[in-house]
Structure formats: structure tokens, C-alpha cells
Write a protein that binds this DNA or RNA. Structure first.
Lengths: 361, 361
DNA sequence: AATTATTTGTGCGTATGTATC
DNA sequence: AGATACATACGCACAAATAAT
């Protein structure tokens, strides 16, 4: 000890010593800088230099107007609970949205939360307005979102990041924005479409068409599942047989029916993106004198009431709808209580058989 | 953003932001200092520093014992705008509820209001919990309600009165609680059912059955309309021909089909409470070998997509659905701005003809 | 008309953050 | 290195004005 120890170092040693001795425990407040000045007969700046170094090391945390506390950074959790969760939904798929919303509302209200709802109509511009308002009003404990056009680039990502920066948990349902590493509760779209195609393959079909949505992730995943079964069965893939549609163009199929049926000519089966598409395909087919399933076998996905009351009730794959809403809300509530909770969940799709597939020898 | 903004500056920015966004308008009262403390997790002094600076700038006016107001004018009545409206819906009639909710949301969001939704499932007990929560949280500017079992006595009336006593405007849609003299936006149920019965009468039918809901006002009004046309045509009324159903017993018709068809034996036409009932009646009839419309003419009310995609597309009477939602929200907003505004509105039902009525000589 | 609850006004004390001499 | 000044922030107590009942 030839060189005398720096004064601030002595202070550091004293504080760490107190902590090691257990006289200062995590959460305890150190005496004020002023008091330490008197204790060590040093000026405030010297004391500050000591606590600053300890603060940098994470040993203590300094809080303006309050004091200096033992322990690392106390995670900033919102003190006040608004008991309010925002739900941003596309409003599309009329047979999926109501029960899902109902499931969400059920779980939220059971836990004493209110639910505030906004609809995007699957429009990015509407989504932007809604998110900006949420940021300005700043009165939610969590956010549940059904992505708008999840498969296309989205300029609203920055708003989601900003909400997340405020430690407000976000959970998605049905689909996700891939660039955001955020939890999602959804159907196993890949599996549903793979099973759908497999059913047709098992029934002996070789030329199987598919109609998919181009703007959402479900469309892409269902396309992948369909493709997976086709390839696994060593059948050939043809772009001609795959028809892409856009969510916003509701009349697209009816307007392009001539072109559609020319594209899928020769196909004996078709995997439809969802029941809404399936019922349109069946309607158009019957109108054109194509019998279902004799001339064309059809399968849908989502198993809505449409599949049952259709002129030709068709095989479909169940979407959990209300259960999915419940799971989404449940996981969000857990995320609100525990920021480390992993909210991801994927539902398996169950086959619901009806007579819309012809067996080919 | 190297230097973190002062906290009071953030409060200033939030308040000015609310004013710029139009959610706080001249004359509106800010939330109390205490509430802002909780909202921002700050002490009152810091909040006061923010409002003081704004007061010095003339942006707000602080009034001791009353509150802090936007602008220089001091209003006589205290009025804090939450820019939030609660919607309490039954969730029943799946084909009516989604578009109605959508219409409400559209109008509310256009005016910068958020919409907070709760569902009663047509249960009085759920309605009670929801209303009590609304009273406790006390953060709404208005209330939109679809009555639960509007035709039966309701023990929750006191909660509606309490909300009304707080000068929070309430508007009902689809139905109303008769003891509450409050505005309602609805379909002209009487007219719809009267027109339905008249159509059958004009086609030469003499024995016309009717199925109505016993627990809601729509059911009672539609029953009255049906009865009105029967009596006007000097036909006899028979209780046997009138079948009452309960909202909560979804399977009632299917379970009692034997009894139902015994009751309406000899009838050549039937007026159904709504399309959901009509589609069930048609399903059961076809199953029993009764042809529609050859043996039994059927009309529905609400003109849902069910009427179109039914195995026998049937004549129905249009419910304005989304338009009704828009009108309801519109009227509530007017009531918020002007407590004297009369929010009542009744939509006329338009006939949508399909081939479900046989002409009798 | 009187009481109670709510809201802003005011003052005091204490602690940390930053800048200057 | 030490001293001082001022800004920012938190907490409490009580007074005064207003609104609701």
C-alpha cells in the first residue's frame, strides 16, 4: 500500500463491505449523499463518484429525488393497471371473427379487464391510425392484434415496436408479422392444407388445384402445406393449378370464373383457402354444370357453418375460433403478469368429413 | 434522444398532443391532478409543474376546487371527456351482431372515440356484472346497449338509472326496456311481421302459423304485427298456431319438431321470428317430407345470408344491420354533445322476395 | 341550507442531476 | 478537489374553492 488509496475507492469498499456483511440488502436505501459526506468528511462529488461507479457495475441503482438503492436495475413495470386491453382485428372472415372476439371478451371480462375494439378492414392505413391513437391515449395494459396483410411488407411495424418499448405486451392471432419476434396464437395452417391435399391424394386424385390468399400468412402457410403433400406423393406441381386471390377483392372469383376454370381444367380436386372460397367455387361449378363431387372434389378449411349449409356440404378442417380467442386472451393476461411468459400456441386442425370427395380408382 | 426528456415535459407533450388530436377540446376538463399522477406514475408536484407551464402559456386554465380546463373559458359544468363509449351486446343473432358492431365502431372511430365491448349472452346476471364494472371504472362518455331479454322484467334497471344520473347518455338498439324512457334505434318489427303475414294473406293463405321469441321485445312486436294483419284480413286467430320460443334454448325447435308440426297442422304458411328460425323450419319440414313452398310457405325476417344460401331460398324482410349500428352510434354522439337530442329512430323493413310462397287460388 | 367529497393552491422538506466557479 | 447554486423529482400536510347530495 505504498500509494494511498483514492478517497472514493474507500467509499466503494465501505459500501460493498456493508452489502457483503448483509447490513445492506437488495432494495435497501443507502444514506443520502449529504449524510455520507459528513460520515466520511468528503464532498458530495466524491461520494457521487463512488456511487456512480457502483451504479455502472449494477451494484446500486440511483433514483433522482428518492435515493440510492442496493441491487441491480429494478425492471420498470407499470404501476397502475388500466384493466383495459385493446383488440385490433381485420373484421374479415365473418364466420371466424365473431366467435374469436367472443372468446377474447369472455376471458378478459372474467379477469376484470375491459376490451376495447378497433377494426382495420385489412387496410394498412386504418391500422396506422388505430395504433397511433393507442400510443397517444396510452391507457391499455396489453394489445391483441390480428395482422392486416401479414404476408406483405408493413410500414406500421415501428408503432408495434414503440408500444413494446413501453412494456405493453402484444400478442397476435391467426397470423403474424414475421419481422416482429412476437407471440402468436394460430391454427396450424400448414397441417390443415397438407391434410386437405392428402385426403384428395388418398382418394386417388392426381391433378389437384389450389386457391390461396396472397396477402396473408395463412394463405402462404396453407399453400406450403398443400405443396408439401403434393410433393410427398411425387405428383407434379403446376403454377397453372394454383390461383392466388386478394382479401380486398371479394368479387374476384366470381369475376374471373371463366379464367379460373380454364386454369384448373382437367383437375379433379381442389383445395380451397377457406370455406368462403370453397362455397364460391361450388356455386360457380354448379352454375357451369360441373357436378360436385362427381366432376370436381372440393375441400375447404376452417369448418364454418357454410360447410354444413352449402348446397353440397363439403369436407373441411376445423378452426378453433372461440377457443383460439380464449387462448389468445389467456396468454396475453399471463404476459401482463409475467413479461417472460411465452405466449405462442398453435392449434392442430381436425378433419371434418362430408361428402365432397369422389373416390377415384 | 441522448438526454432523456424531463418528466414534466412529457406530461406537457401528452396534454398538447391530446388537444392537437382533438380528443381534448376548448372547455373540456382535464383529468384531475391525482388521476394524472396515477396515469404517469409521477407525484402531483410534477404534474402541477406541467399544467402550470401550460396555464402560463394560456393553453389551459386552472380553477381551484373545480379542475383544469382547456382554453381560457371556464365552463359552468364539469365535463371530462374520456373519448370512450361502452357497447353492451347480447352477441346473439350471429348474422346481425357483427355488421351492427362494425357500423358502431366505424362511426365512433371516425369521431375519435374508442369502443369498449362486452357481451351478455342474453343473460341478466352477465349484464349486471358488466354494468357494475362500468359504474366502478367510470370512464365512458356514453353507453350503447342491446337489451337482454327486453320483454321480461329486468332487475338491472337500477344500474341504467344510476348511469343516467351521472349524465352519461344511454341509447339502445334492436330492443328497449319499456320501463326506461330511453332512446332506441331499431327495425320496425311490427311492420316487418305485418308485411310478412300480409304477403301470405295476399297469396291466398288462410291458415297462417307464427313462431316468435317470448323473451325479447322484437318477438312481441313481430307477434303483434303478424296478429295485426291476420285480424285486418278478418281471419281467425288461434293460439295453437302460435309457437313461442326462448332465446337460450337453441335446440328447442329441433327437439320439439313433432309437437310443433302437430300444432301447426293444416297451416299452409308460416311467419318466422327471424331467418335462423326460418332455416330450421325449412330443414325440419324437408326432412319430414313437407315440401317448401308447395306444402308450406315460409317467410323469414332480417334477410340474412341464410335466406339466400338456404336449400330453399326464402322471402325475408331486410334488417339494416350495419346502417343500424351507424345510426345508433351517430345518435349517441349527438346525445353526448347535446343532452336534449332525441336519439330515437325506427328503420322500415324492406321486402326481399324469393320463391318460398305458394299462390293459393 | 348544510354536509361531504373532490379538486386545486400553497408550503415545507428531502434527494439526486448538472453546471459553474 | 471542493464548494456552491440551481433544476428536477418525490412526499406529505393542510387550506381554500367548488360541486354534488
Amino acid at each position: 500500500m505504498a500509494v494511498p488509496e483514492a478517497k472514493y475507492q474507500k467509499v466503494i469498499n465501505w459500501i460493498t463491505g456493508e452489502i457483503v456483511a448483509g447490513r445492506l440488502q437488495p432494495g435497501d436505501r443507502l444514506m443520502s449523499e449529504e449524510k455520507m459526506c459528513k460520515k466520511f468528511d468528503l464532498c458530495r462529488q466524491t461520494i457521487r463518484r463512488a456511487t456512480q461507479e457502483l451504479a455502472e457495475r449494477g451494484v446500486v441503482t440511483r433514483v433522482q429525488g428518492s435515493g440510492t438503492y442496493v441491487g441491480g436495475v429494478i425492471p420498470k413495470i407499470r404501476k397502475e393497471r388500466y384493466m383495459n386491453v385493446a383488440v385490433v382485428s381485420t373484421f374479415y372472415e365473418s364466420y371466424i371473427f365473431p366467435p374469436t372476439l367472443r372468446g377474447i371478451e369472455k376471458k378478459l371480462s372474467e379477469s376484470g379487464y375491459t376490451m376495447q375494439v378497433s377494426f382495420t378492414d385489412n387496410r394498412i392505413s386504418n391500422e396506422a391510425v388505430i395504433l397511433k391513437t393507442l400510443l397517444e391515449k396510452d391507457n391499455i395494459d396489453g394489445l391483441i392484434v390480428e395482422p392486416s396483410k401479414g404476408a406483405l411488407p408493413n410500414p406500421n411495424i415501428k408503432y408495434y415496436k414503440e408500444i413494446s418499448d413501453r412494456h405493453i405486451p402484444i400478442i397476435f392471432f391467426n397470423d403474424i408479422y414475421p419481422v416482429l419476434q412476437m407471440p402468436c396464437v394460430r391454427l396450424d395452417d400448414w397441417e390443415a392444407a397438407a391434410k386437405a391435399a392428402q385426403l384428395l391424394i388418398d382418394a386417388g386424385h392426381k391433378k389437384i388445384a389450389g386457391i390461396f390468399k396472397l396477402d396473408d400468412g395463412q394463405g402462404h402457410r396453407r399453400y406450403s402445406g398443400y405443396l408439401g403433400s403434393i410433393i410427398k406423393a411425387n405428383l407434379k406441381t403446376h403454377s397453372r393449378r394454383i390461383f392466388w386471390i386478394d382479401t380486398e377483392l371479394q368479387q374476384e372469383l366470381a369475376e374471373q370464373e371463366e379464367y379460373l376454370f380454364k386454369r384448373i381444367e382437367g383437375c379433379t380436386g381442389i383445395v380451397c383457402y377457406n370455406d368462403e372460397v370453397a362455397i364460391q367455387v361450388i356455386d360457380i361449378a354448379l352454375k357451369r354444370g360441373i357436378r360436385v363431387p362427381d366432376d370436381l372434389s372440393v375441400v375447404g378449411i376452417d369448418n364454418s357453418n357454410l360447410a354444413e349449409i352449402c348446397k353440397v356440404p363439403f369436407t373441411s378442417f376445423s378452426h378453433p375460433k372461440e377457443k383460439l380467442g380464449e387462448k389468445t386472451a389467456d396468454n396475453l393476461l399471463k404476459m401482463i403478469d409475467n413479461p417472460l411468459f411465452d405466449g405462442n400456441y398453435i392449434f392442430s386442425a381436425k378433419t371434418v368429413l362430408r361428402n365432397s370427395i369422389r373416390k377415384i380408382q
